[in-house]
Amino acid sequence: MTGHVTTLAGPVPVVSAKLTARDRLGGWKVRWGIRRYSYTVDPGLYALGAPSDTSPVLVTANYKLSFDALRCRLEGRAAWILALDTRGINVWCAAGKGTFGTAEVARRIEAAALNQVVSHGVVVLPQLGAPGVSAPEVRRRSGFRAVWGPVRAQDLPAFIDGGLRATPEMRRVRFPLRDRLVLVPLEMTAVAGIALAVLVVAAAVAGFGPGGFSLARVLAGVLPLAAVLAATTLAGTVLTPLLLPWLPGRMFSARGFAVGAVAAAFVLPWMPPTYSTLRLAAAALTMLAGSSYLAMNFTGSSTFTSLSGVEKEMRASLPWQVAGAVAAAALWIAGGFVR
């Protein structure tokens, strides 16, 4: 915020198109899951540059990462930015939940007295807000014509210069390597916590064997398991997302299974010679079922899966994934008692 501009509807806070080091740090942190659900801006109207009553009105979510992605593409331009209250959730997900919705658009237009701020009667909505917003209904409720902007904020300058027209390419969602890469830290850290918890439980279980509890057995059992869980996490939450287009099969669970198999081929030869066959089998099952499950979990982060499709995939995959995990746990525990 860099002051206020005065409009017929009262003062409006001004924001810069330049991101500060703090903005960038905040964006980096939420990608790692730090303060992710409280990374917000206040909902309402903002001025970027020195907008007039003919400047475009760009609608976005009050997730600061979304808000920043929008304003940083508009350097040297003048525009109004209308941030909806999506409770700090990005546009696409909030549209799916309905918080980026028709009622909220109409309410914010009214609350900002937008008809006194601009004279053109048009708001530009992000295309990915469309699952929650009916453009015809916005018009009926607010009098404002809702025009669908491009999917990506980076296309906004060309969209505006082209007279609020999007090319077909601007309307398409892709899922390039860069977009998949930024999701990896969150996927990875969420799972690493679970893996650590499994490891703690396993450490307690591993001590028991022939002749009671032994600390040496804890280490001998748990250190290889740590490597197996790390490999599973890497396979399912890092390698599968990054290699997604080149992996076999349409189902994510199949793609994750393939990566899990490769991980197993790399990791199993490094297991200690004292590791029982049962525990080797448990390790293999963990990597196959685990990587497959984690890959399936990535469906929600991807841009091209459908609810019906994921349900079908889960019906096909979840039973054997769960059976594999249960069998792996049983084999691993049993493996502590035999050679």
């Binding site: 799916g96 469309a130 009916s134 979990n297 899966t305 609810l307 499709g309 994921v310």
Partner: peptide
Amino acid sequence: LNCDFDAIHVRAGVGCAA
């Protein structure tokens, strides 16, 4: 949602296993 003429129907949701 944006078809004002009831020509399109779909069971909407998110394709998200979690």
